[in-house]
């Protein structure tokens, strides 16, 4: 979020078309065509982004019936929300999903460190390409194929266990409460193909060779280098990743929808699914709007905190990624 007001001197000449005549009263001239040029953008984000957000807040105070008369409820929907067990357990699931996501960065981090240590440029390129190929596949395909892996009868995992003589370990992975959430989390294992890996790898590539040579002269080993050079230099990137992981987690949903639909017995329920179910199956649009508004506020608050923290923090952190 760096607002680069880099060179004010660039602006004045370009703002004023060199027409003769209107020199003395520059400021009075309102260039209406500038606003005309921005109109499409304003209409789109105004009507399809800001207006829905505001209308969700408004309707969250009603027993909202889009096709009929809606009755005012005050904070009724929010009070319902506070005693909604499914809603809150869906946040517990989100917490687990977030923790798992962050812990699973071990794999991309390890892969990036190993990759950067390869001396052969050709090997580096080949391995990097192979490792990121899964990113090219649509998320739904990945979810569906993993769903196939988990399926109780012909699923790859159970078949493998059978082939190894471990039939006793075969499970209905996504169909029982004890393993359903864990099964969802393991979709995409080993989690290397993704933004964290790209960011780790490119920041490792960007460490100046002088630093590494100096470290080598001082006898810093590979592990010491990781702790003393690599990690500190990645700190600002990791903060961005943490923020993205929070936002990404709040949006988590389609994998759960495809593999478990939030079940069994709400064991894999997440807020987005709850919100959709309340509206489309329960028909309680006002309550859904309240849930939507809550999610929206949580996101805004987290983002604001992060932006403020970044502003207050080191100004050296380049906003390249944001």
């Amino acid at each position: 979020m760096v607002v680069t007001l880099d060179a004010p001197s660039l602006m004045p000449p370009s703002t004023e078309p060199r027409t003769t005549g209107s020199r003395p009263r520059k400021r009075v001239v309102i260039r209406w065509w500038i606003y005309l040029a921005l109109l499409p953008l304003a209409v789109f984000i105004g009507y399809f982004a800001y207006y829905p957000a505001v209308s969700a807040i408004f309707w969250s105070f009603f027993h909202w019936q889009p096709a009929a008369e809606s009755t005012f409820l005050g904070f009724g929907n929010y009070i319902t929300m506070f005693s909604d067990q499914i809603w809150w357990s869906s946040f517990r699931n989100l917490g687990l999903i977030f923790l798992f996501a962050v812990v699973s960065w071990v794999f991309p981090l390890l892969a990036a460190e190993l990759l950067i240590s390869l001396r052969s440029a050709r090997w580096q390129f080949t391995m990097r390409t192979l490792l990121i190929v899964p990113m090219a596949f649509p998320g739904v395909v990945t979810a569906l194929v993993w769903g196939f892996f988990y399926s109780p009868n012909d699923g790859v995992i159970n078949q493998t266990l059978k082939a190894l003589g471990l039939e006793a370990l075969a499970q209905n992975w996504t169909g029982q409460e004890s393993t359903a959430l864990l099964s969802l989390l393991f979709v995409g294992f080993p989690f290397i193909a993704g933004l964290p890996f790209l960011i780790f790898y490119s920041s490792l590539q960007n460490i100046p060779t002088e630093v590494l040579e100096a470290a080598q002269l001082d006898g810093v080993g590979r592990f010491a280098r990781f702790w003393q050079i690599d990690l500190p230099l990645m700190a600002s990137q990791v903060r961005i990743l943490l923020f993205l992981a929070v936002v990404g987690t709040l949006q988590y949903g389609f994998v759960a929808y495809i593999l478990t639909a939030g079940g069994p017995d709400n064991a894999t329920m997440v807020p987005i699914l709850r919100m959709i179910n309340v509206a489309f199956q329960g028909g309680d649009w006002g309550y859904s709007a309240a849930l939507s508004t809550t999610l929206f506020l949580i996101t805004i608050i987290i983002s604001a905190v992060v932006v403020l923290a970044r502003k207050r923090g080191s100004s050296t952190a380049d906003g390249g990624a944001m």
Binding site: P52, A53, I272, S292, T299
Partner: peptide, 27 residues
């Protein structure tokens, strides 16, 4: 270009970067 409301408009765009579209699904 520099004009009245430039910062405001750009700010309104930046804020949307922070809000996932899914939050608007229902409305």
């Amino acid at each position: 270009y520099r004009f009245a409301g430039r910062g405001f408009i750009y700010g309104a765009v930046l804020v949307l970067m922070m809000v996932p579209g899914l939050a608007n699904l229902i409305p």
